[in-house]
Design a protein around this nucleic acid. Sequence first.
DNA 1: GCGACAG
DNA 2: ATCTTGTCGC
Length: 326
Amino acid sequence: MDKRDLTKVPDLEKIILNLLLQIPEGMVTSYKDVANALGDGAAARAVGTVMANNEEPKKYPCWRVVRSNGEVGNYSASGGREAKIEKMKKEGIEVEEGTIKNFSEVRYDDYEIDPPLPRLREIQNGLERMVKLEQSEPPESVAGVDVSYGPDGAVAAYVEMDNRGEEVVYRKTFREERVKFPYIPGYLAFRELPLLNNLLEEVRGSRGLSDVIFVDGNGLIHPRKAGLATHLGVVLEHPTIGVAKKLLCGEIEDDGPGEDRDRKVRLEEDIVGLEVKTFARANPVYVSVGNRIMLDQAGELTRKVSTYKLPEPIRQAHKAAKSRAT
DNA sequence: GCGACAG
DNA sequence: ATCTTGTCGC
């Protein structure tokens, strides 16, 4: 596989909006139906988000998209939900008490499309054998990356600190006006990787990358062992550590009583992460290998550079990204 | 200031 | 992630 293909991302917003043009007048579809056409029902909410942000409601008939239980749902274009109902009625759809009358008969789900999401899952499946689990030298510096979203697009930030996470030694941000890929659980990398990759290539070309990079999101804690931290680590061929605030998948291993070591996250037969309590009065974070480091080392390093809940480099990157995005 | 909880 | 405001506790 060509490395460059790992960072190519389809314009899913455009794909979704163009799919709407296939819905015949006089029929409706559901957010879930559109998601299934993309190749994964998990994208249903993302479809809703794209509808809500549709800037050309005249051109793209998002009023024909309803909830899969037949309820009309929302309409963010002018006139709101009432306008949505009126538009559907004009097209011959019967609506009663906010619900489509003969839903199963007027429901369109026969989309003609080469579904993009299965292809992206294949890319993720191919990443696993490119991950290197190896003992990494104790770092002289650590960095964190994060992405923030605002009215003028998204901003990615890279912040490098000393190896104890006490002093910021370098900051860099990168802005992108239009993010083409919505957030879909399990596909976060395709949303944020283009931004982070651009940013980190710039850093690599100017001052060079820090010894290890903390990423706001999972590494191997992922249904296909291909979270953002792993995807980024493989693309850069560089040590990365994923730190997430919520458990995406897997289960916490019960080691029984008397054990105050970090609990392990198990995904099927593999230990893919650690539940680490970084800050006494906060929830734990979930640490996983991105690339080129060992899990125990990732856990220790996370502890070492965390003053609050999140590793300081990530926290600083979050601040840097947010202040430029807003 | 930071985070849980609300919603 | 963001929309948004506040209370409570450390």
